[in-house]
Design a protein around this nucleic acid. Structure first.
Lengths: 194, 194
DNA sequence: TTCATTTCTTAAACTAGTTTAAGGGTAGGT
DNA sequence: ACCTACCCTTAAACTAGTTTAAGAAATGAA
Protein backbone atom coordinates (compact mmCIF):
# COMPACT_ATOMS: atom_id res chain seq x y z
CA UNK A 1 0.00 0.00 0.00
CA UNK A 2 1.68 3.16 -1.16
CA UNK A 3 -0.02 5.43 1.37
CA UNK A 4 0.92 3.48 4.47
CA UNK A 5 4.08 5.29 5.64
CA UNK A 6 2.37 8.66 5.11
CA UNK A 7 -0.78 7.75 7.05
CA UNK A 8 1.38 6.35 9.87
CA UNK A 9 3.24 9.66 9.90
CA UNK A 10 0.02 11.73 10.08
CA UNK A 11 -1.27 9.54 12.88
CA UNK A 12 1.73 10.41 15.04
CA UNK A 13 -0.01 13.82 15.26
CA UNK A 14 -3.76 13.04 15.33
CA UNK A 15 -5.96 9.96 14.75
CA UNK A 16 -7.71 9.63 11.35
CA UNK A 17 -11.06 8.16 10.31
CA UNK A 18 -11.23 5.59 7.54
CA UNK A 19 -13.05 8.08 5.23
CA UNK A 20 -10.28 10.62 5.75
CA UNK A 21 -7.63 8.05 4.93
CA UNK A 22 -9.50 7.18 1.73
CA UNK A 23 -9.61 10.85 0.72
CA UNK A 24 -5.87 11.11 1.22
CA UNK A 25 -5.14 7.90 -0.71
CA UNK A 26 -6.84 9.30 -3.80
CA UNK A 27 -4.74 12.44 -3.78
CA UNK A 28 -1.18 11.18 -3.46
CA UNK A 29 1.32 9.54 -5.78
CA UNK A 30 4.54 7.63 -5.30
CA UNK A 31 7.75 8.35 -7.17
CA UNK A 32 11.16 6.69 -7.36
CA UNK A 33 14.29 8.78 -7.80
CA UNK A 34 17.73 7.90 -9.08
CA UNK A 35 20.85 9.25 -7.36
CA UNK A 36 21.22 12.94 -8.30
CA UNK A 37 17.79 13.14 -9.88
CA UNK A 38 16.08 16.51 -9.38
CA UNK A 39 12.42 17.01 -8.54
CA UNK A 40 12.69 20.82 -8.69
CA UNK A 41 15.31 23.13 -10.16
CA UNK A 42 15.83 26.90 -10.04
CA UNK A 43 13.06 28.67 -11.96
CA UNK A 44 10.55 25.86 -11.47
CA UNK A 45 7.42 26.33 -9.45
CA UNK A 46 7.49 23.69 -6.70
CA UNK A 47 4.00 22.30 -6.98
CA UNK A 48 4.34 19.30 -4.69
CA UNK A 49 4.87 18.51 -1.06
CA UNK A 50 7.29 15.58 -0.90
CA UNK A 51 7.36 13.00 1.88
CA UNK A 52 10.48 10.82 1.97
CA UNK A 53 9.70 7.11 2.31
CA UNK A 54 13.26 5.95 1.65
CA UNK A 55 16.53 7.69 0.83
CA UNK A 56 17.85 11.22 1.34
CA UNK A 57 16.94 14.43 -0.47
CA UNK A 58 18.55 17.82 -0.19
CA UNK A 59 17.24 21.34 -0.77
CA UNK A 60 19.94 23.67 -2.03
CA UNK A 61 20.35 27.16 -3.44
CA UNK A 62 22.82 28.33 -6.04
CA UNK A 63 24.66 31.62 -5.51
CA UNK A 64 25.86 34.16 -8.10
CA UNK A 65 29.10 32.24 -8.60
CA UNK A 66 27.10 29.10 -9.34
CA UNK A 67 28.16 27.49 -6.06
CA UNK A 68 25.60 25.23 -4.38
CA UNK A 69 24.60 25.69 -0.72
CA UNK A 70 22.58 23.08 1.14
CA UNK A 71 19.77 24.52 3.22
CA UNK A 72 18.47 21.24 4.60
CA UNK A 73 18.33 17.49 4.19
CA UNK A 74 15.35 15.16 4.52
CA UNK A 75 15.62 11.47 5.37
CA UNK A 76 12.98 8.79 5.97
CA UNK A 77 9.63 10.14 7.28
CA UNK A 78 10.50 13.78 6.68
CA UNK A 79 8.97 16.41 4.42
CA UNK A 80 10.84 18.41 1.83
CA UNK A 81 9.46 21.19 -0.35
CA UNK A 82 10.23 24.75 -1.27
CA UNK A 83 7.76 26.74 0.83
CA UNK A 84 8.91 29.96 -0.83
CA UNK A 85 7.83 28.97 -4.30
CA UNK A 86 4.96 26.69 -3.27
CA UNK A 87 3.01 29.54 -1.71
CA UNK A 88 4.11 32.34 -3.96
CA UNK A 89 3.15 30.11 -6.90
CA UNK A 90 6.16 31.81 -8.43
CA UNK A 91 9.42 30.33 -9.68
CA UNK A 92 11.60 29.35 -6.73
CA UNK A 93 15.31 29.82 -6.41
CA UNK A 94 15.93 26.48 -4.80
CA UNK A 95 16.58 22.98 -6.02
CA UNK A 96 15.53 19.63 -4.58
CA UNK A 97 17.64 16.61 -5.47
CA UNK A 98 17.99 12.99 -4.39
CA UNK A 99 21.36 12.36 -2.74
CA UNK A 100 20.75 8.60 -2.66
CA UNK A 101 18.39 6.39 -4.64
CA UNK A 102 15.10 7.45 -3.03
CA UNK A 103 11.38 6.87 -2.89
CA UNK A 104 8.91 9.65 -2.14
CA UNK A 105 5.19 10.30 -1.80
CA UNK A 106 4.01 13.48 -3.49
CA UNK A 107 0.95 15.65 -2.89
CA UNK A 108 0.27 18.18 -5.62
CA UNK A 109 -0.70 21.71 -4.66
CA UNK A 110 -4.35 21.52 -5.74
CA UNK A 111 -4.71 18.15 -3.97
CA UNK A 112 -3.26 19.56 -0.77
CA UNK A 113 -5.68 22.50 -0.93
CA UNK A 114 -8.53 20.06 -1.49
CA UNK A 115 -7.42 18.04 1.52
CA UNK A 116 -7.11 21.18 3.71
CA UNK A 117 -10.73 22.04 2.88
CA UNK A 118 -12.04 18.54 3.53
CA UNK A 119 -9.88 17.48 6.47
CA UNK A 120 -9.42 20.57 8.68
CA UNK A 121 -7.10 18.72 11.04
CA UNK A 122 -4.51 18.76 8.25
CA UNK A 123 -4.31 22.52 8.75
CA UNK A 124 -3.31 21.84 12.32
CA UNK A 125 -0.90 19.03 11.43
CA UNK A 126 0.92 21.10 8.84
CA UNK A 127 0.94 24.05 11.23
CA UNK A 128 2.78 21.82 13.73
CA UNK A 129 5.09 20.32 11.06
CA UNK A 130 6.02 23.81 9.88
CA UNK A 131 6.62 24.90 13.46
CA UNK A 132 8.90 21.91 13.99
CA UNK A 133 10.83 22.75 10.86
CA UNK A 134 10.98 26.37 12.01
CA UNK A 135 12.57 25.38 15.32
CA UNK A 136 15.17 23.35 13.43
CA UNK A 137 15.95 26.31 11.18
CA UNK A 138 16.13 28.80 14.06
CA UNK A 139 18.69 26.59 15.73
CA UNK A 140 20.61 26.56 12.47
CA UNK A 141 20.59 30.37 12.24
CA UNK A 142 21.93 30.59 15.79
CA UNK A 143 24.85 28.31 15.00
CA UNK A 144 25.47 29.92 11.63
CA UNK A 145 25.96 33.39 13.10
CA UNK A 146 27.56 32.54 16.42
CA UNK A 147 29.50 29.29 16.26
CA UNK A 148 32.82 28.15 14.88
CA UNK A 149 32.78 25.65 12.05
CA UNK A 150 33.55 22.86 14.54
CA UNK A 151 30.54 23.72 16.71
CA UNK A 152 28.37 23.91 13.61
CA UNK A 153 29.56 20.43 12.62
CA UNK A 154 28.72 19.04 16.07
CA UNK A 155 25.30 20.68 15.83
CA UNK A 156 24.81 19.09 12.40
CA UNK A 157 25.58 15.67 13.93
CA UNK A 158 22.89 16.28 16.57
CA UNK A 159 20.39 17.42 13.93
CA UNK A 160 20.98 14.53 11.52
CA UNK A 161 22.44 11.61 13.51
CA UNK A 162 21.08 9.05 11.05
CA UNK A 163 22.13 10.87 7.90
CA UNK A 164 25.63 11.95 8.95
CA UNK A 165 27.44 8.85 7.77
CA UNK A 166 25.31 8.39 4.67
CA UNK A 167 26.10 11.83 3.25
CA UNK A 168 29.29 12.58 1.27
CA UNK A 169 31.59 15.16 2.84
CA UNK A 170 31.02 17.63 0.04
CA UNK A 171 27.30 17.71 0.92
CA UNK A 172 27.98 18.20 4.61
CA UNK A 173 30.52 20.95 3.93
CA UNK A 174 28.02 22.70 1.69
CA UNK A 175 25.49 22.56 4.53
CA UNK A 176 27.99 23.97 7.04
CA UNK A 177 29.14 26.77 4.75
CA UNK A 178 32.76 25.57 4.72
CA UNK A 179 35.00 23.75 2.28
CA UNK A 180 35.32 19.93 2.29
CA UNK A 181 39.02 20.44 3.09
CA UNK A 182 38.22 22.34 6.23
CA UNK A 183 35.61 19.75 7.25
CA UNK A 184 38.25 17.08 6.94
CA UNK A 185 40.54 19.10 9.26
CA UNK A 186 37.73 19.55 11.80
CA UNK A 187 37.06 15.81 11.87
CA UNK A 188 40.73 15.06 12.46
CA UNK A 189 40.78 17.51 15.38
CA UNK A 190 37.66 16.02 16.96
CA UNK A 191 39.08 12.49 16.74
CA UNK A 192 42.50 13.47 18.13
CA UNK A 193 40.98 15.49 20.99
CA UNK A 194 39.05 12.48 22.31
CA UNK B 1 -10.13 49.30 21.42
CA UNK B 2 -7.11 47.20 22.33
CA UNK B 3 -7.90 44.37 19.91
CA UNK B 4 -8.23 46.47 16.78
CA UNK B 5 -4.73 46.17 15.24
CA UNK B 6 -4.75 42.41 15.89
CA UNK B 7 -8.17 41.81 14.30
CA UNK B 8 -7.14 43.94 11.31
CA UNK B 9 -4.03 41.75 11.01
CA UNK B 10 -6.04 38.50 11.13
CA UNK B 11 -8.44 39.84 8.52
CA UNK B 12 -5.59 40.30 6.06
CA UNK B 13 -5.70 36.46 5.95
CA UNK B 14 -9.39 35.54 6.28
CA UNK B 15 -12.64 37.38 7.17
CA UNK B 16 -14.01 37.00 10.72
CA UNK B 17 -17.55 36.90 12.14
CA UNK B 18 -18.52 39.22 14.98
CA UNK B 19 -18.83 36.26 17.40
CA UNK B 20 -15.30 35.14 16.55
CA UNK B 21 -13.94 38.63 17.13
CA UNK B 22 -15.68 38.70 20.53
CA UNK B 23 -14.09 35.36 21.47
CA UNK B 24 -10.66 36.73 20.58
CA UNK B 25 -11.19 40.00 22.47
CA UNK B 26 -11.79 38.08 25.70
CA UNK B 27 -8.57 36.17 25.39
CA UNK B 28 -5.94 38.82 24.72
CA UNK B 29 -4.17 41.46 26.79
CA UNK B 30 -2.16 44.55 25.99
CA UNK B 31 1.21 45.35 27.50
CA UNK B 32 3.53 48.35 27.36
CA UNK B 33 7.27 47.83 27.43
CA UNK B 34 10.09 50.18 28.38
CA UNK B 35 13.28 50.28 26.32
CA UNK B 36 15.32 47.15 27.12
CA UNK B 37 12.51 45.51 29.05
CA UNK B 38 12.42 41.71 28.67
CA UNK B 39 9.28 39.65 28.22
CA UNK B 40 11.20 36.34 28.25
CA UNK B 41 14.70 35.48 29.40
CA UNK B 42 16.80 32.29 29.17
CA UNK B 43 15.32 29.56 31.33
CA UNK B 44 11.79 30.97 31.15
CA UNK B 45 8.99 29.12 29.46
CA UNK B 46 7.62 31.41 26.77
CA UNK B 47 3.90 31.15 27.44
CA UNK B 48 2.66 33.93 25.18
CA UNK B 49 2.42 34.79 21.54
CA UNK B 50 3.29 38.47 21.18
CA UNK B 51 1.93 40.75 18.48
CA UNK B 52 3.76 44.07 18.09
CA UNK B 53 1.41 47.06 17.90
CA UNK B 54 4.15 49.68 18.19
CA UNK B 55 7.91 49.58 18.63
CA UNK B 56 10.57 46.95 17.93
CA UNK B 57 11.35 43.73 19.76
CA UNK B 58 14.24 41.36 19.23
CA UNK B 59 14.68 37.64 19.89
CA UNK B 60 18.25 36.79 20.83
CA UNK B 61 20.30 33.88 22.12
CA UNK B 62 23.32 34.01 24.40
CA UNK B 63 26.36 31.85 23.61
CA UNK B 64 28.84 30.18 25.97
CA UNK B 65 30.94 33.35 26.14
CA UNK B 66 27.86 35.32 27.17
CA UNK B 67 27.70 37.10 23.83
CA UNK B 68 24.25 37.96 22.48
CA UNK B 69 23.15 36.99 18.96
CA UNK B 70 20.00 38.37 17.38
CA UNK B 71 17.89 35.77 15.61
CA UNK B 72 15.16 38.11 14.42
CA UNK B 73 13.44 41.44 14.91
CA UNK B 74 9.71 42.22 14.95
CA UNK B 75 8.28 45.65 14.15
CA UNK B 76 4.70 46.87 13.87
CA UNK B 77 2.14 44.16 12.91
CA UNK B 78 4.58 41.29 13.34
CA UNK B 79 4.60 38.32 15.70
CA UNK B 80 7.42 37.41 18.04
CA UNK B 81 7.62 34.37 20.31
CA UNK B 82 9.96 31.51 21.07
CA UNK B 83 8.36 28.60 19.22
CA UNK B 84 10.96 26.24 20.67
CA UNK B 85 9.96 26.77 24.26
CA UNK B 86 6.28 27.52 23.58
CA UNK B 87 5.64 24.07 22.20
CA UNK B 88 8.06 22.10 24.27
CA UNK B 89 6.55 23.79 27.34
CA UNK B 90 10.14 23.62 28.51
CA UNK B 91 12.53 26.42 29.43
CA UNK B 92 13.75 28.16 26.29
CA UNK B 93 17.23 29.36 25.57
CA UNK B 94 16.18 32.58 23.95
CA UNK B 95 15.37 36.07 25.17
CA UNK B 96 12.81 38.55 23.89
CA UNK B 97 13.45 42.20 24.60
CA UNK B 98 12.07 45.58 23.56
CA UNK B 99 14.64 47.57 21.58
CA UNK B 100 12.44 50.69 21.65
CA UNK B 101 9.56 51.70 23.91
CA UNK B 102 6.92 49.27 22.63
CA UNK B 103 3.34 48.16 22.90
CA UNK B 104 2.29 44.54 22.36
CA UNK B 105 -0.80 42.34 22.41
CA UNK B 106 -0.30 39.00 24.16
CA UNK B 107 -2.15 35.71 23.82
CA UNK B 108 -1.38 33.21 26.58
CA UNK B 109 -0.81 29.58 25.64
CA UNK B 110 -4.05 28.19 27.09
CA UNK B 111 -6.01 31.02 25.44
CA UNK B 112 -4.45 30.29 22.09
CA UNK B 113 -5.30 26.60 22.44
CA UNK B 114 -8.87 27.58 23.36
CA UNK B 115 -9.07 29.80 20.27
CA UNK B 116 -7.66 27.04 18.01
CA UNK B 117 -10.46 24.72 19.21
CA UNK B 118 -13.21 27.29 18.76
CA UNK B 119 -12.05 29.11 15.63
CA UNK B 120 -10.51 26.47 13.32
CA UNK B 121 -9.49 29.08 10.77
CA UNK B 122 -6.86 30.24 13.28
CA UNK B 123 -5.09 26.93 12.67
CA UNK B 124 -4.87 27.89 9.04
CA UNK B 125 -3.84 31.50 9.74
CA UNK B 126 -1.04 30.49 12.07
CA UNK B 127 0.01 27.78 9.62
CA UNK B 128 0.42 30.51 7.01
CA UNK B 129 2.12 32.94 9.45
CA UNK B 130 4.61 30.25 10.44
CA UNK B 131 5.23 29.43 6.80
CA UNK B 132 5.92 33.11 6.09
CA UNK B 133 8.36 33.28 8.99
CA UNK B 134 9.93 30.04 7.74
CA UNK B 135 10.57 31.54 4.31
CA UNK B 136 12.22 34.55 5.97
CA UNK B 137 14.43 32.27 8.05
CA UNK B 138 15.36 30.05 5.10
CA UNK B 139 16.51 33.13 3.25
CA UNK B 140 18.56 34.07 6.30
CA UNK B 141 20.23 30.63 6.42
CA UNK B 142 21.15 30.93 2.76
CA UNK B 143 22.85 34.27 3.30
CA UNK B 144 24.47 33.18 6.55
CA UNK B 145 26.24 30.24 4.92
CA UNK B 146 26.94 31.63 1.48
CA UNK B 147 27.25 35.41 1.49
CA UNK B 148 29.85 37.95 2.50
CA UNK B 149 29.04 40.27 5.38
CA UNK B 150 28.22 43.01 2.88
CA UNK B 151 25.68 40.86 1.04
CA UNK B 152 24.17 39.82 4.36
CA UNK B 153 23.83 43.48 5.28
CA UNK B 154 22.09 44.26 1.97
CA UNK B 155 19.78 41.31 2.54
CA UNK B 156 19.02 42.62 6.04
CA UNK B 157 18.06 45.98 4.52
CA UNK B 158 15.63 44.18 2.18
CA UNK B 159 14.18 42.14 5.03
CA UNK B 160 13.70 45.05 7.43
CA UNK B 161 13.54 48.26 5.35
CA UNK B 162 11.47 50.07 7.98
CA UNK B 163 13.53 48.97 10.96
CA UNK B 164 17.00 49.48 9.51
CA UNK B 165 17.39 53.10 10.55
CA UNK B 166 15.63 52.68 13.88
CA UNK B 167 17.98 49.95 15.12
CA UNK B 168 21.37 50.74 16.72
CA UNK B 169 24.37 49.35 14.85
CA UNK B 170 25.22 46.98 17.67
CA UNK B 171 21.85 45.26 17.20
CA UNK B 172 22.29 45.02 13.44
CA UNK B 173 25.84 43.69 13.80
CA UNK B 174 24.61 41.08 16.27
CA UNK B 175 21.99 40.01 13.71
CA UNK B 176 24.57 39.79 10.93
CA UNK B 177 27.08 37.84 13.03
CA UNK B 178 29.78 40.51 12.68
CA UNK B 179 31.25 43.18 14.93
CA UNK B 180 29.81 46.72 14.95
CA UNK B 181 33.25 47.86 13.80
CA UNK B 182 33.07 45.74 10.71
CA UNK B 183 29.50 46.87 10.00
CA UNK B 184 30.71 50.44 10.08
CA UNK B 185 33.40 49.57 7.53
CA UNK B 186 30.84 47.86 5.27
CA UNK B 187 28.58 50.90 5.33
CA UNK B 188 31.46 53.16 4.39
CA UNK B 189 32.28 50.89 1.44
CA UNK B 190 28.68 50.84 0.20
CA UNK B 191 28.42 54.63 0.35
CA UNK B 192 31.75 55.21 -1.40
CA UNK B 193 31.00 52.65 -4.15
CA UNK B 194 27.81 54.49 -5.19
C1' DT C 1 38.91 -6.77 -13.26
C1' DT C 2 40.05 -2.54 -15.17
C1' DC C 3 39.60 2.21 -16.23
C1' DA C 4 37.45 6.55 -15.29
C1' DT C 5 35.36 9.47 -12.21
C1' DT C 6 34.35 11.13 -7.97
C1' DT C 7 35.68 11.83 -3.28
C1' DC C 8 38.99 12.62 0.45
C1' DT C 9 43.32 14.22 2.44
C1' DT C 10 47.36 17.17 3.32
C1' DA C 11 50.11 21.27 3.32
C1' DA C 12 51.20 26.09 2.21
C1' DA C 13 50.02 30.55 0.67
C1' DC C 14 46.31 33.61 1.03
C1' DT C 15 42.08 36.51 2.26
C1' DA C 16 38.01 37.82 4.81
C1' DG C 17 36.61 39.07 8.99
C1' DT C 18 37.91 40.05 14.11
C1' DT C 19 40.04 42.12 17.93
C1' DT C 20 42.04 45.63 20.36
C1' DA C 21 42.56 50.12 21.71
C1' DA C 22 41.96 54.93 21.65
C1' DG C 23 39.13 58.82 20.59
C1' DG C 24 34.97 61.51 19.04
C1' DG C 25 29.93 62.16 18.87
C1' DT C 26 25.32 62.15 20.76
C1' DA C 27 21.15 61.57 23.82
C1' DG C 28 19.04 61.63 28.18
C1' DG C 29 19.12 62.92 33.13
C1' DT C 30 19.67 66.42 36.61
C1' DA D 1 24.73 73.57 30.85
C1' DC D 2 26.95 69.68 32.31
C1' DC D 3 27.95 64.91 33.04
C1' DT D 4 27.51 60.13 32.19
C1' DA D 5 26.60 56.36 29.54
C1' DC D 6 26.14 54.72 25.28
C1' DC D 7 27.13 54.55 20.44
C1' DC D 8 30.04 54.95 16.46
C1' DT D 9 34.51 55.30 14.01
C1' DT D 10 39.34 54.35 12.53
C1' DA D 11 43.53 51.83 12.03
C1' DA D 12 46.68 48.02 12.84
C1' DA D 13 47.72 43.55 14.42
C1' DC D 14 45.76 39.16 14.37
C1' DT D 15 43.08 34.69 13.53
C1' DA D 16 39.75 31.69 11.42
C1' DG D 17 38.63 29.85 7.36
C1' DT D 18 39.75 29.42 2.05
C1' DT D 19 42.13 28.31 -2.01
C1' DT D 20 45.10 25.82 -4.71
C1' DA D 21 47.28 21.88 -6.17
C1' DA D 22 48.75 17.20 -6.15
C1' DG D 23 48.26 12.58 -4.73
C1' DA D 24 45.64 8.63 -2.42
C1' DA D 25 41.41 6.17 -1.79
C1' DA D 26 37.00 4.84 -2.85
C1' DT D 27 33.18 4.12 -6.05
C1' DG D 28 30.77 3.05 -10.41
C1' DA D 29 30.37 1.52 -15.12
C1' DA D 30 31.73 -1.63 -18.68
Amino acid sequence: MISEPLIAHFETYLPFEKEEVDLIKERISRKELRRREHITTTGDICRHYNFVVKGILRLYVTDEQGKEHNILFAGENEWIYDITSFHATSPGISNIQAVEVSEIIQIAQQDLYFLYENIPKLDRIFKVITEEKYVELQNRVFHAISSTAQQRYLSFLMQYPKLANRLPNTQIASYLGITPEFLSMIRKEIVSSK
